[in-house]
């Protein structure tokens, strides 16, 4: 038997223990998100999925659904907050879409389109982050990292390899790989790993495949992320 809660006034069924995010997804309803992925444990770090549940702000990806709960999702207030969070992510890293091979298939970019982000607004941090091209099959461009830790989770939980981790703290937090040399080539990472294809942005890229699908015909070129995600 399943209960229901209200998402923007419409009933969404859920089973006991299901999060608001998972239930909404199962019902084909889109709650903007970046660090959440149905295959992995919820993380709750990007905060894009912040909703208002019975009047209280909470991340939909970690919030257990309760019967009769009223959840606001696509309100002007919440979408404004989401746009600001996206702007924060854009100025924190170096996100130059014109020169990124993930353009059109990037969740950060597609979510920003969906939320009509016209400008990064804040003053850019322009951090200095090196690229790691040491691996024969994979490229790491840390400039685009949004610290969602999907690669950390995928490598640990799906691949059993623990190739990635986060170090540093605060604005200096950053992704590292599992070798004292700091090079991806010296880790157990392989192209077939789940972690190799899970990056929502353009950090982990397979070499030599960047433009197999031309720009303009990619996942989020064809459809807005809200519609594309819920299929």
């Amino acid at each position: 038997m399943s209960d229901v809660f209200l998402l923007d006034g419409e009933q969404v069924p859920f089973t006991v223990g299901q999060t608001v995010m998972a239930a909404a997804r199962a019902a084909g309803r889109y709650i903007p998100h970046l660090c959440w992925h149905p295959e992995f444990q919820p993380h709750g770090s990007c905060r894009l999925c912040t909703v208002k549940a019975d009047g209280h702000f909470a991340a939909a990806c970690t919030l257990a659904a309760r019967p009769g709960m009223t959840v606001d999702n696509r309100t002007a207030e919440l979408d404004d907050q989401r746009r600001t969070l996206l702007q924060m992510l854009f100025v924190e890293g170096n996100h130059f879409c014109p020169s990124c091979e993930k353009s059109g298939a990037c969740k950060l970019q597609a979510t920003a389109y969906e939320l009509k982000m016209m400008t990064p607004h804040f003053d850019h941090f322009f951090p200095d982050r090196a690229v790691d091209a040491s691996h024969p099959d994979l490229l790491l461009d840390f400039n685009r990292c949004i610290l969602c830790e999907l690669c950390v989770r995928a490598s640990r939980d799906a691949d059993g390899k623990n190739v990635f981790a986060i170090t540093g703290r605060g604005i200096k937090s950053h992704l590292i790989v599992n070798s004292p040399s700091g090079r991806l080539a010296d880790t157990a990472m392989s192209l077939a790993d789940r972690a190799a294809s899970v990056c929502p942005v353009g950090v982990i890229l397979a070499k030599g495949r960047g433009f197999v699908i031309p720009i303009g015909e990619r996942r989020y070129d064809r459809q807005q992320i809200g519609a594309a995600e819920e299929q």
């Binding site: 170096n94 996100h95 130059f96 879409c97 014109p98 020169s99 400008t119 850019h124 322009f126």
Partner: peptide, 18 residues
């Protein structure tokens, strides 16, 4: 109006910033 990527976020020329 910030007209185009470079005006909006520095764009390609800003790649020298590191």
């Amino acid at each position: 109006v910030a007209f185009g990527a470079c005006a909006v976020n520095g764009g390609l020329p800003a790649q020298r910033n590191h």
